[in-house]
C-alpha cells in the first residue's frame, strides 16, 4: 500500500497541480496578511475560502484524478496486489498531496508573519485541521462516486452536485426549516443538523473562535456552551473523523466487489 501511495503521491507532485494549489493558498494568505496586517482578520477572510474551496478542489481533483488514472489502476489490478491497497493507497496519495499543499500554503505565511508579530496558533491550528479534514472528506466522497459510476460525465456531475448540496443547498434548507418552525425550541435541531454536514461543522468550529461576542447573544450561548467546551470540540473532531472514515470504508467495500 505504501508503495502505491508513494507512486500516486509523486505522480501528483510531478503534475504540478499540487504546486499550483500550494501557491494559490500561499498567495491568498500572504496577500490577506499583507493587506490587513492582522492575523485575526486574515483568518476571517480565509474562513469562507477554506470552507468552500477546499471541498470543491478536493471534489474536482478527486474525480478527475480517478478517471485519469484508470488505466494505471487496471494495470495494478492485474498484479498480485490487494484491492484495498490499490484503492486506499491511491486515495491517500492524492489526499495527502492536496493536504500538504494546503497546509503549507496557509502555514508558511503565518510562520513568516510570526517572526515580527505574535500569532495565536489556537485559531490557526483549527483552520488548518479543518481544511485538511475537508480535503480528506471530499476527496473520499468524490473517489467513492467515481468508483460507483463508470461514466465520466455522470460521475463528475454527481460529485459537483454533492459539493453543491453540502456547501449551499443544505444551509438554505436549514434556514428554511428554522424559520418555518420558529415557534419551537430549535437549538438542538440546528445543532444536530450542523453535525450532519462537515462543511457547516467546520464553519461553526471556526466561527466560535472568531465571532465570540455575537454568538454570546441569547441563543448563541447554547451553541457556545456546547462547542466552546473541550467536550464539544472532541465530539466535533470525532464527527469529522467519522465523516472521513465512512466514505473510505465504502471505497474499500465497493472496490472489493466491483467488476472492472
Amino acid at each position: 500500500m505504501l508503495k502505491i501511495l508513494k507512486y500516486s503521491f509523486y505522480d501528483l507532485l510531478r503534475s504540478k497541480w499540487t504546486l499550483i494549489y500550494f501557491l494559490f493558498f500561499l498567495l491568498i494568505t500572504q496577500g490577506l496578511l499583507y493587506i490587513t496586517g492582522d492575523e485575526a482578520k486574515t483568518i476571517v477572510g480565509l474562513l469562507n475560502v477554506v470552507v468552500i474551496l477546499c471541498p470543491l478542489i478536493a471534489t474536482v481533483f478527486g474525480t478527475v484524478n480517478f478517471y485519469n488514472s484508470r488505466e494505471f489502476t487496471e494495470l495494478l489490478l492485474a498484479q498480485p496486489l490487494k484491492r484495498r491497497d490499490i484503492f486506499i493507497g491511491q486515495y491517500l496519495g492524492m489526499t495527502l498531496s492536496l493536504s500538504i499543499g494546503y497546509f503549507l500554503g496557509v502555514l508558511i505565511p503565518f510562520v513568516i508573519h510570526s517572526i515580527t508579530y505574535t500569532v495565536d496558533y489556537s485559531v490557526l491550528s483549527i483552520l488548518l485541521f479543518v481544511g485538511v479534514f475537508l480535503t480528506f472528506i471530499f476527496s473520499a466522497l468524490s473517489f467513492l462516486i467515481s468508483l460507483i459510476t463508470d461514466n465520466k460525465i455522470k460521475g463528475f456531475g454527481l460529485s459537483i452536485l454533492t459539493w453543491l448540496l453540502l456547501a449551499l443547498v443544505y444551509d438554505g434548507m436549514q434556514l428554511f426549516l428554522l424559520s418555518m418552525l420558529d415557534n419551537y425550541p430549535l437549538e438542538k435541531i440546528s445543532l444536530v443538523m450542523t453535525f450532519l454536514n462537515p462543511i457547516d461543522l467546520s464553519r461553526v468550529m471556526l466561527m466560535l473562535k472568531l465571532d465570540m461576542s455575537a454568538l454570546l447573544g441569547y441563543t448563541g450561548a447554547v451553541f457556545n456552551k456546547f462547542f466552546g467546551s473541550s467536550f464539544g470540540y472532541a465530539i466535533s473532531l470525532s464527527a469529522l473523523l467519522i465523516w472521513t472514515v465512512i466514505p473510505v470504508y465504502f471505497i474499500n467495500r465497493i472496490s472489493m466487489k466491483k467488476d472492472f
Partner: peptide, 20 residues
C-alpha cells in the same frame, strides 16, 4: 433581520449561502 425572527439561525453565520 432574519435573526430577529429566528435567533437559532445564528448557527448559519458566515455561511456561504447567507453571504449570497
Amino acid at each position: 433581520q432574519v435573526l430577529g425572527y429566528t435567533p437559532e439561525a445564528i448557527i448559519l453565520l458566515r455561511s456561504f449561502f447567507i453571504e449570497l
